[in-house]
Design a protein around this nucleic acid. Structure first.
Ligand SMILES: [Mn+2]
Ligand SMILES: [Mn+2]
Ligand SMILES: [Mn+2]
Ligand SMILES: [Mn+2]
Lengths: 218, 218
DNA sequence: TATGATTTTTAGATATATCTAAAAATATTT
DNA sequence: AAATATTTTTAGATATATCTAAAAATCATA
């Protein structure tokens, strides 16, 4: 059994390890968790004693096989709860993350089994992220960031990579949502900004930074 | 904001204060929470510094007005979650308490508002206990324990006072559930045990101890 | 490769929540 | 009312999770 703090470290370290190739550094973990490097060192010692991380002093950490399994279960719970909040409790997609951060630590196999069933075994959460199954397996949709496709491309928005309140509220405002059809009308070479058309209707301009966080399936 | 531990103490002390008239003793709290008297003394000092309890050394504690309000909100969350688990996730009434003990500490006003709405504003939980509203108000059904009524009485089972696994599973086995119609066929003077008929069909014998924990509305 | 910058670890504190053992206060019984 | 029993509090430890400041290791670069 992992504590809340241990689960939060594990989840963060797992996410970081997916982004980069080598070992995950102490400072990267500290920054992600808004904590201090000294605290991270203490915790990674604890987690590596439990066999969840492998750790060499001054060399960063890797997530072990058992660690990956445990991390994916926390992620599974997080995303199932987010789906519940949106599908059943009518939360907006920018309102779910904080609550899911709490709910993901509730410990009951039966609860998660029944929740999954109740939600009709969803494969993706409200941000388009895949929901791992009870064995930690999941499939991602083939997808590409809007800033990586060329003009005239048409696709369906399948996920958003920034899940901050501010970003999601902005997407709401300009009419972007998962499942929307989008066409690249123009790509400005100078700053990488885009003019796009949503659902063959409204056209909007988005910055390169925004386009990097919107992923489509062509 | 109260911590998990503080909320658990408060809820327990509130329940004890409802059962008895005077102050709640250190030992009673320790026994309820399966902890030691020394730990209780520490915690009640903390809670009385926060204005949630009033406390005089060696004289036990009383729950303040603000304490009552906070306690009823935790109880509200506990009972709403139990209702969710039974009504939506098909939990049996003996499977919900442990999970609700965790869920009751999730902190989100929106979540509870929407959950209440999703459940269609339930007034009683799966054990027949009243669910306080957002102001802490609730109504109990008029009710009496089976061991306090005389032979030939007919009533509807409206709540069960023991919510342990073992007791609830036993009730399942003998066919007793909330809403069942029950008639007292015979009361044995010697040991207070009862022969009762359920839904005008099956008749069963129950001990006095069991009858004290089944409450009906006549 | 030596030197300075950066990263990481260690040492030592603090806060929460718990415990055991001893002391103090209160309650009960003779 | 004194002696005894019970309850409650205090003193001092332990475990978790955090922090700051200083030391040690590693990295970057001149
Ligand atoms: Mn999230
Ligand atoms: Mn998500
Ligand atoms: Mn309960
Ligand atoms: Mn209940």
């Amino acid at each position: 059994m992992l504590s809340f703090a241990e689960e939060n470290y594990l989840k963060t370290i797992y996410h970081l390890s997916e982004e980069i190739d080598g070992a995950v550094s102490t400072n990267a973990i500290a920054e992600s968790l808004n904590t201090k490097a000294a605290s991270v060192t203490d915790m990674i010692k604890k987690l590596s004693n439990k066999g969840i991380l492998s750790y060499q002093k001054y060399r960063g950490v890797h997530v072990s096989e058992s660690g990956k399994k445990a991390a994916l279960q926390v992620i599974r719970k997080h995303r199932l709860w987010e789906t519940f909040l949106v599908d059943k409790l009518k939360f907006n997609w920018d309102e779910v993350h904080e609550v899911a951060e709490q709910l993901e630590h509730i410990n009951s196999a039966l609860l998660i089994k029944r929740l999954d069933e109740f939600l009709a075994y969803p494969k993706f959460d409200p941000h388009g992220d895949p929901i791992p199954d009870e064995n930690g397996e999941y499939k991602s949709k083939p997808q590409v960031a809007l800033n990586h496709v060329k003009a005239d491309t048409i696709g369906i928005i399948v996920s958003v990579k920034d899940t901050s309140n501010a970003f999601l509220k902005y997407l709401d405002k300009i009419g972007i949502y998962l499942g929307a059809k989008v066409k690249i009308l123009e790509k400005v070479e100078f700053d990488g900004s885009l003019e796009i058309q949503i659902d063959s209707k409204k056209t909007v301009f988005i910055s390169k930074e925004v386009s990097e966080n919107i992923w489509i399936s062509e």
